[in-house]
Design a protein around this nucleic acid. Structure first.
Lengths: 347, 347
DNA sequence: TTGAAAGCGCTAACAC
DNA sequence: GTGTTAGCGCTTTCAA
């Protein structure tokens, strides 16, 4: 057995640039030049410094660097998503990470949990760590508190939801239009009693999707039946109960429009329990995992979180690279993917 | 319209502690005391400083702080998982975030993608940013390169996979035993021709799970039929092709043991295509989304990524709080969840 | 081409 | 209870 690292050893101090300079017998600034790949250093010097750095296992301190460097960049981004455990958020996260990795930028990721206090807390935590940019999903009633930071030059991109009280780059799905397309699809299959199961109307996306639902019905001369509309569903269990009740009512819907992925899963559970999954149509706003393997397969309005994340990161980096054009509002279309559940005709 | 933040304004500099001190008419150190909640400041002083800080929208610079503070902590953690977009990884991430949030610690999250170069790159990026601790999923053949950092006192916890060449806290599922339990379950239902579909044997988890598969068969006096064993499956499509081939062979298996979630999904696709999903049993190592809603519902060996993440974070913080006990190896049991697909008897 | 001095924003140590 | 000085590790500035 070779001895492999013992935690009871006296802790060695981390090597600094000065240590490297001393060992290499050069000035601190020369080490700095080599580490940062600056020109005007002779090959021998480069070699000497490299060797010393390797011997000491030197790792430059980016915090100390960013404190002194002229643009004060930290090569760091703050990302706030609904929840890092949510597949939609996770896809955004991954896309941001990929874009950031290419530029040597590290990403702080946090979960919002639709809690305004967490929004403020996360943003503060990011700002105290002097992130170069912010990609934010928001829930607070106003983001005016970001005004000073934006004026200061920190790029901010809002994703998934529109911000209030500040203007900055925004990347969104076309919630309203996509919702209309989903409802129109059901109407085409003869449905007129369409239930709407949605999230809290405090959410931008929930409002937009319901607006699309309502407008599309009206465009087809179908009155919105309030008894078929349920708002404020935030988890599977609530959605299941709401769908249960609708299916057990005197005049049950012939189709369900679910405005969000967790609600969809809850609705499927209810439809199965009532053995109505092949009789009552279902369209889900948001894709769900395994949708193609369910019976019936689930017709969805599919967002593109990867593209949303990529575009958001691109906006941040464009701003960091000097883009001073007016704030952009990028809309990423959601597409209707017919798979079966949405093509069940009205009975 | 009220004017709301204009990006073409001259960029105001960020307020520093000195600015706050000047405005409040006190010394820098007094501001420092107030910001950090240190004792021995009169209430009036606190109020004056608070007001000045608020007026200037002062945000302390944690980098400058950590540079000077005696323990050099940055209140930052580095987390490397398989992929932030993978549900298993995302659950770990979320658990780590929750534990970190309670201590005001921010989390850098990165994806490994089973690429040794990414492992090294991510760890370097974390170290250059002087994270207080590392939670790592690894793929490189050795983690000996971390020895110096561990000696230096940075806590490192390995999750999901065992490390090589260093000793440090580790949190793992009981891959071997859980795999045996899964196979034993199939044997109980009369299966003797059980296929194994697994990931690259370079992975610690893949090796352990296969070892469990093999040993459990042998314990039941069943010879391992090499024609029923496929390694090196890394995505759904590969798994589907492998399962297709097995099902179409002269002597098809009566059961499939899938060693990983993506392989399970691919296997389900193949079983459906061959209309064998109600005839050939299937057990999945790793839960998959919607498993209960599939037909048949999928029997799984369910890991507990939330617990893995929580324990990993607890280890880090215990070390940061001074725990000097020998490295721990925590095993989080995976449990067999019978749902239907694993209870199809041998035909 | 190289290096010495100054200083980024903050806190430790110590004076008052 | 409060302020002053020095210095964390690094880059900038500027002189050699």
């Amino acid at each position: 057995m070779t001895p492999i690292s013992s935690s009871s050893l006296p802790r060695r101090k981390r090597a600094t640039m000065q240590n490297v300079a001393d060992l290499a017998g050069v000035g601190k600034k020369t080490v700095s030049r080599v580490i940062n790949g600056e020109p005007n250093v002779t090959p021998e010097m480069i070699e000497r410094v490299r060797a010393a750095a390797a011997q000491l296992q030197y790792q430059p301190d980016m915090h100390a660097r960013s404190l002194r460097v002229s643009d004060r960049r930290t090569q760091t981004l703050g990302l706030l998503v609904g929840s890092v455990a949510n597949p939609f958020s996770a896809a955004i996260h991954r896309a941001v990470e990929d874009a950031a990795l290419a530029r040597g930028v590290a990403v702080f990721a946090s979960s919002l949990d639709d809690d305004p206090a967490r929004e403020r807390g996360s943003v503060e935590a990011f700002l105290r760590r002097r992130v170069d940019g912010l990609i934010l999903t928001t829930i607070a009633s106003s983001q005016a508190y970001l005004g000073a930071e934006i004026d200061h030059g920190t790029p901010v991109v809002f994703v998934d939801r529109e911000a209030t009280g500040v203007q900055s780059d925004t990347v969104l799905a076309d919630n309203y239009e996509a919702s209309r397309r989903g409802v129109a699809h059901l109407v085409e299959y003869g449905h007129r009693r369409i239930a709407y199961l949605g999230d809290k109307p405090a959410l931008f996306t929930a409002r937009e999707r319901f607006r699309g639902f309502r407008d599309e019905l009206q465009a087809n001369d179908i009155a919105v039946d309030e008894s078929l509309v349920v708002h404020g569903l935030t988890d599977e269990a609530q959605a299941t109960r709401a769908a249960d009740a609708l299916l057990a009512s005197e005049q049950p819907p012939t189709a369900i429009f679910s405005a969000q992925n967790l609600i969809t899963i809850g609705s499927i559970t209810a439809l199965r329990a009532a053995q109505q999954q092949h009789r009552v149509a279902l369209i889900s706003f948001d894709d769900i995992p395994m949708a193609e393997l369910l019976e019936p397969a689930i017709t969805v309005v599919q967002q593109d979180p990867t593209r949303i994340g990529r575009l958001a990161a691109e906006r941040i980096f464009a701003r960091l690279d000097g883009d001073e054009s007016p704030p952009e509002r990028l809309v990423v279309p959601a597409v209707l993917v017919p798979r079966g559940s949405g093509e069940i005709p009205a009975s």
